[in-house]
């Protein structure tokens, strides 16, 4: 479970996130929506410890990201929106590096690396440096890294970007299974069809403020609309 309580973040004079409170429950897939620059990535970066919180608290499975940082970070796996990290490492080096950091046993990691890298069709490229990978392949490698780690909380920033249809389908299935097993999946996306198909709950953020949190049914009830999520989303986030 992720709990975000009265969180603020400001860059100079600009409010990036303003008094956001949000609960991402276990056993559910939670979609985080908002137009570009709404504060999605800033919120996710605060949850993952990349950015410090100006005020408020964030806990992951009850562990505070500010005061109990390392324990909180052990609880989640994160796939960043731009997977351009560790470019000089080979794919396999990266997966071993990650496994060492999260203390994954040798036989377990071996089986997981083989299974998931084959599932996402990157096994054959594991001997190449990440810098030679395409955007989609880098994305798949970072997803594989998270799967090798198998944390209880998954945090994914725009995870479908650059994925081919097969990989996208497989990731969605994995997300469903993970939530069904009583774990947490928190992801941001621009692809509203994916959110509509996949999410048990959504939150919509605009200009740093939370506009809505709840199920899609609750959203339709609240806004008294039978329209698609796309329509409601556009109405909610328009600059009027």
């Amino acid at each position: 479970m992720i709990q975000i309580v009265h969180v603020h973040k400001q860059y100079g004079n600009k409010k990036a996130v303003s008094d956001v409170s949000l609960t991402v429950p276990t056993g559910k897939i939670f979609g985080f929506l908002g137009p570009n620059g709404a504060g999605k990535s800033t919120t996710i970066k605060m949850v993952t410890g990349i950015l410090p919180v100006d005020s408020g608290t964030i806990t992951v499975n009850g562990k505070d990201i500010t005061s109990d940082t390392i324990a909180a970070k052990q609880e989640f796996g994160y796939v960043p929106d731009s997977p351009d990290l560790f470019l000089r490492l080979k794919g396999l080096d990266y997966l071993h590096f990650l496994s060492d950091i999260y203390g994954i046993a040798a036989d377990v990691r071996e089986a997981r690396i083989e299974e998931y890298s084959k599932m996402f069709s990157i096994y054959e490229a594991l001997g190449d440096q990440i810098k030679t990978y395409s955007h989609g392949m880098r994305q798949k490698l970072f997803i594989t890294g998270m799967l090798v780690q198998q944390p209880s909380v998954w945090i994914l920033d725009e995870p479908m970007t650059g994925l081919d249809p097969k990989s996208s389908y497989q990731l969605k299935e994995l997300m469903r299974n993970h939530a069904a097993n009583g774990h947490t999946v928190f992801f941001s996306s621009h692809v509203l069809e994916v959110v509509e198909q996949l999410c048990d709950e959504v939150a919509i953020i605009r200009k740093g403020e939370l506009l809505f949190q709840g199920t899609l049914t609750e959203m339709r009830e609240k806004f008294q609309s039978d329209d698609s999520l796309e329509h409601i989303f556009l109405e909610l986030t328009q600059d009027a």
Partner: peptide
Amino acid sequence: QSWEAHLFLPL
């Protein structure tokens, strides 16, 4: 830019 990874990994 890989520095960012040091911030979300439990290091």
